[in-house]
């Protein structure tokens, strides 16, 4: 009598754990996708894909700082991503050649970050988990941080939506309506830094840019308003997260890259659908 009971408890515990890490991963993936979607739309509309990359790559430097000073990875990456984003925005306003500047800053930050991480003696960390993410290792407290960040970003974007959209179309239109486009740019910068900080564990620094751009670009082909595009990007992003995790689970592929692969398939599919609809 006692033996089967023990077995049952043991099995259910194992099932719980198993359920838990996958559920946690799915919740983390969906959360990050929801926050990345509207910001990704602005990244696409403003042609600042490189900007997202630069911010994300700088996050590795943030990881190194966090380990060195014993602060939370989230705080460290957030601080460095924010610093990077503000630096880029400021320099852009002074007429530097943007793509060159971003190329220098993004890759330097990544390289310095990787070197700094390798210099941390006594701490065993695998830089791979920050480059490609470690979504299956998301803890309950990670999940709390991720979702607080996600909800914060979504509320921020909804609150500033009209001003952001006007400034994106034309800064002078914004000025004439009493909106400061520089302030809206700062809102976007802060939102991006938060998304980078919460997404580094989910898809990793190298693929955050993909999570920003690919769902938004996929939604563009099948939508007719900015709002529809943002919602579409959120749906496609969340579906990519679920699909990628399923792929990772069934085929034993790395989770972060799998999510991006599924998103890329969505991009191809939505563009194909739009083409077919157009020729009819």
């Amino acid at each position: 009598m006692a033996t089967p009971v023990t077995t049952t408890i043991h099995t259910s515990k194992a099932t719980d754990m198993f359920d838990d890490f996958l559920v946690r991963a799915i919740l983390a993936g969906i959360g990050v996708s929801l926050a990345a979607a509207p910001l990704g739309c602005f990244v696409v509309w403003r042609r600042m894909a490189y900007f997202g990359d630069a911010t994300a790559h700088a996050a590795i430097l943030g990881v190194a700082f966090s380990l060195a000073f014993g602060i939370s990875i989230f705080v460290g990456t957030l601080a460095v991503a924010l610093a990077m984003a503000i630096t880029v925005t400021t320099l852009a306003g002074r007429g530097y050649a943007m793509d060159t500047l971003l190329g220098v800053l993004a890759h330097s930050a990544l390289a310095f970050g990787l070197v700094a991480v390798s210099l941390q003696h006594g701490i065993r960390i695998d830089p791979m988990s920050y480059l490609f993410g470690d979504i299956l290792a998301v803890s309950k407290s990670d999940l709390v941080v991720i979702w607080i960040g996600v909800i914060g970003v979504i509320l921020l974007v909804i609150w500033r939506w009209q001003g952001l959209l006007t400034s994106t179309l034309n800064p002078d239109l914004a000025y004439a309506s009493g909106i400061d486009p520089k302030r809206e740019q700062l809102v976007l910068t802060i939102g991006l830094a938060v998304v980078v900080a919460v997404a580094i564990k989910v898809v990793g620094a190298l693929l955050i840019g993909a999570l920003l751009v690919i769902p938004a670009a996929s939604a563009r082909a099948v939508t007719k308003s900015p709002e529809a595009m943002a919602v579409g990007a959120a749906i496609i992003g969340a579906a990519s997260a679920c699909g990628g995790l399923w792929m990772s689970y069934t085929m034993d592929t790395p989770a972060g890259p799998s999510i991006v692969c599924v998103a890329a398939v969505f991009f191809a599919a939505s563009n194909l659908v739009a083409r077919i609809a157009l020729t009819r």
Partner: peptide
């Protein structure tokens, strides 16, 4: 006004900027 082709925007929606 150069509207990026990635930004779907109807004339009516444009008139609702920055106020609905």
């Amino acid at each position: 006004l150069a509207i990026d082709p990635t930004l779907p925007l109807t004339a009516g929606r444009f008139l609702s900027l920055p106020h609905r």
